[in-house]
Nucleic acid binder design. Structure first.
Lengths: 208, 208
DNA sequence: GTCTATATCGGGATAGAC
DNA sequence: GTCTATCCCGATATAGAC
């Protein structure tokens, strides 16, 4: 009875992503997810038993999608400045095409903070090691007089916030779709440049 | 019958702020708002007729609270570098004590983009003039080779994102309450410094 | 203005036929 | 696995007494 190549279960998960991403947990309707997937509402319960399970599946997917890429880049053997460029290029690209994702995740982190640790474990992620790596690289490689955690948060902020604030830029500053796309395109070069300029100011003049 | 100094209407609005800020539109319950205000559910409808009206009142309050302060600072006659310091000091302070506000507003902007223009008009806000002012000041005063809108968004990003990402810092990087407060306190000096360092890199070497 | 009672609807979830 | 029918609760909203 399948009206497409993919299985019902897959189509339900895909539909759930669409709906949850845009409307959040409370705003999403099981009926809408079923409609979107082209199946009966009961079938959604058949596969996922309840709304919470389904949401968790969607959230984990979104979260790990972002966090594993972040890990990949920052644990690589690239120079730190190259990492910044790579990271921002990738994130701005990916996020501007999935602009609902970051807000969805931030909301999820507020609503369901308990589940996070389990999820990190499941994906074998150790945030402390990430920070250690960054800390070491900022000290050894660049010898900067600035707290690496602030640097890390600044990188995230400059990459993610403009995406989260999309409706602000659209509706308050009246940017059209094309203007927005151009703006995001510019950020791929503007942001790394901005950060590297800032970091120059923290170089220790004499380390001997 | 008032069990406090403030009127029922005021207490209802205050209660609505608490509940909407934390749970969002869909997650909020009229019953909870009534309970929080210590009044009957019907009384909420008596004053605000329906959930949408009440939400709009709450949203406008939150939005104008943030935007008017932003306007005040950036339209003042301070030097641009001083504006940055003033703005970040104020925003980080205010937001870290109302950490639910920015996410609440970002969500509202996604869900109800239509109402924004009306609200801007009501508060007599002209975002274009704000950008013009910043543009002029960055050119005349500092003579920088960078798009002022990127600078503006960067300032916002560095101030607002760390607040929005509070549960991320708490739950993923395991910051305690004290550590978080200290982190936000540090940002009041770290962020202006970071931005001003970055801007130095854009100074035109010779403007004659 | 403030309450009680009630209408009405929608949404999550289950039972059970096929 | 997939559907129909239904249960049941909870939530918004209104009517109307005081």
């Amino acid at each position: 009875m399948e009206n497409s190549i993919s299985s019902s279960e897959e189509r339900i998960l895909d539909a759930a992503k669409k709906v949850f991403h845009c409307k959040g947990y409370d705003g999403a309707r099981m009926q809408e997810i079923a409609d979107e997937a082209g199946v009966n509402k009961s079938l959604v319960h058949y596969y996922y038993r309840n709304k919470d399970n389904l949401f968790q599946a969607v959230f984990e997917d979104a979260f790990s999608k972002l966090i594993t890429k972040l890990n990949e880049i920052f644990f690589s053997e690239l120079a730190f400045t190259t990492k910044i460029e790579t990271f921002i290029g990738y994130y701005v690209s990916f996020l501007s095409q999935n602009s609902y994702l970051p807000l969805f995740i931030l909301n999820g982190l507020y609503e369901k903070p308990e589940q996070i640790r389990t999820m990190l474990a499941k994906n074998q992620l150790l945030p402390e090691r990430l920070i250690d790596k960054i800390k070491k690289q900022i000290k050894d490689e660049l010898n900067l007089e600035i707290d690496p955690f602030h640097v890390f948060i600044n990188i995230l902020a400059l990459s993610v916030f403009p995406i989260v604030a999309k409706p602000l830029i659209e509706n308050i500053f009246g940017y059209s779709d094309e203007q927005l796309n151009q703006f995001y395109e510019e950020r791929k070069t503007v942001v790394p440049e901005f950060i590297l300029n800032a970091l120059k100011g923290y170089e220790k003049k004499h380390s001997y």
